[in-house]
Design a protein around this nucleic acid. Sequence first.
DNA 1: AGGCCGATCCTCT
DNA 2: GAGGATCGGCCTA
Length: 226
Amino acid sequence: MPQPPGGLLPRAFFEAPADQVAPRLLGKLLVHATASGLLAGRIVEVEAYLGPHNDPPDPAAHSYRGPTPRNSVLFGPAGRAYVYSIYGRYFCMNVCCEPEGQAGCVLLRALEPLALAGDSGLAQMALNRGLAQGEHGCKLTSGPSRLCQALALSRLVHNGLDLLDPDSPLQLRDDGYPVHEVLVTPRIGIKHAVDWLLRFALPGHDCVSGPAKMTKGLIGKRIFIR
DNA sequence: AGGCCGATCCTCT
DNA sequence: GAGGATCGGCCTA
């Protein structure tokens, strides 16, 4: 098995409000070590969901009404995966933020697929997505449930996994990819707090999901980080 | 490019 | 019992 590039991120990186962590997560790597090789992508689009301690609390967040069996991982330590099922057919993956007891998180909305294991990783992602071999483009991982499908992530196996543990099969890594400019817009697909600017993306990146007005910078603003 | 629709089932009220 | 942090197909333009 090839060694993934870069290093693990420190826990403190995630022990902060989700709207601070989210833009800093852009450009980082999500790597899933599976029996059939490394499935990986670079994060190009995320959304922040704020915990119920926030003032005002975030009515679109799963944690809005406090802990439940489904969202309990959100109230645990930072740097863990929160994976949930939606619409009976799909999964979405978040990264837990904030110190233990608080429940902010970052939804991963799109990755740029990466060939860490040579083309076999891309071929496996295409297989997982039910796409033809040779479909090695953004259709693999452009969308929160598409990326889970491509990387073979599911609630039963991956919810609660520590993304910062050297022995974890699912890791977040930093290979030094530089990100300075970030597109900030409202979040997609929610019915509450629709005007909160909590979606973050790499400006102009092909793999960013959503309608054109949300990807081209016609809505929202640009910020500079670091 | 944009809008509508159905699939499908888990979670919480 | 209702609704959901989605997706892909199909429609119109």
